[in-house]
Simulated scan of single mutants.
Amino acid sequence: MNLNATILGQAISFVLFVWFCMKYIWPPIILAIETRQKEIKESLTNAKKAQDELYILEKKIHQNIIDAKQKASNILNSANKQKVSILEDARNQALEESKKIILNTQSEINIAITHARKNLHKEVVDLSISMAEKIIKKNISKDDNQELLDELVTSLSQVKN
């Protein structure tokens, strides 16, 4: 066999192989590569957009957290003011109630003292009358001093009433 004919045959078969590859195999491979490149570019673009959106959302969340902390602080301040106000009102009401109770108790004590004095006075008068009667019965005869006895009983009766 001739070396030139073999090389020529191999060159022709190589050209046919290259032509066949370029006609039927190369276009789907290039299409797949281009499609894959497009998908990668779109994925990178979408990732960049998502990263930008994430950054924006993080800023919004951070601002929302700051706003929420401010609102919570305002609510706490308001609650503390309301607590102080309620405590002050309760303290004032308690003082007023205690004053009323003290006045009521004082008036009850005064009434009780008045009743006790009246009862004591009545008992003293009763005892005085009783003692006077006993003393007069012992020391004074009926005949001698009937007038004195009548005057004493009358005066003691008037004191009793």
Rank of each mutant, 00 (worst) to 15 (best):
L3P: 04
L3A: 11
N4Q: 09
N4T: 09
T6V: 04
T6R: 00
T6F: 03
L8A: 09
L8H: 08
L8R: 02
G9P: 03
I12N: 06
I12H: 07
F14C: 13
V15Q: 04
V15N: 11
V15S: 11
F17V: 07
F17R: 11
F17P: 03
K23S: 06
I25L: 09
P28G: 06
I30D: 12
I30R: 03
I30K: 11
I33N: 04
I33D: 06
I33H: 06
T35C: 06
T35E: 15
Q37L: 10
E39Q: 12
I40H: 14
E42D: 13
E42A: 15
E42P: 01
S43C: 08
S43D: 10
L44V: 04
N46P: 01
A47Q: 13
A47I: 03
A47M: 03
K48P: 03
K49Q: 06
A50F: 08
A50C: 00
Q51S: 12
D52W: 05
D52I: 08
L54A: 15
L54T: 14
Y55L: 13
E58F: 12
K60E: 15
I61G: 08
H62M: 04
Q63E: 10
N64P: 01
I65V: 12
I66A: 13
I66L: 11
A68H: 14
A68L: 15
A68G: 10
Q70S: 11
Q70D: 14
K71P: 01
A72P: 00
N74T: 02
N74S: 12
N74A: 12
S78D: 11
Q82S: 15
K83V: 02
V84P: 00
V84G: 02
S85W: 08
L87N: 14
D89L: 13
R91N: 10
R91S: 10
Q93H: 15
Q93I: 05
Q93P: 03
Q93F: 06
A94Q: 08
L95C: 04
S98Y: 03
K100Q: 11
I101N: 15
I102W: 09
L103R: 01
L103N: 08
Q106L: 12
S107G: 00
E108D: 13
E108A: 10
E108L: 13
I113W: 01
T114Y: 06
T114M: 01
A116C: 04
R117A: 07
R117E: 10
K118E: 05
L120Q: 00
H121V: 02
K122P: 00
E123A: 14
E123S: 10
E123Y: 09
D126F: 09
L127I: 05
A132P: 01
E133N: 12
K134V: 07
K134T: 14
K134E: 15
I136S: 10
I136K: 05
K137Q: 02
K138H: 09
K138V: 09
K138W: 14
K138E: 13
I140Q: 05
S141I: 06
N145W: 03
L148Q: 07
L148A: 13
D150E: 11
L152S: 05
L152W: 03
T154S: 15
L156A: 07
S157F: 09
S157T: 11
V159Y: 10
V159M: 15
K160W: 03
N161Q: 11
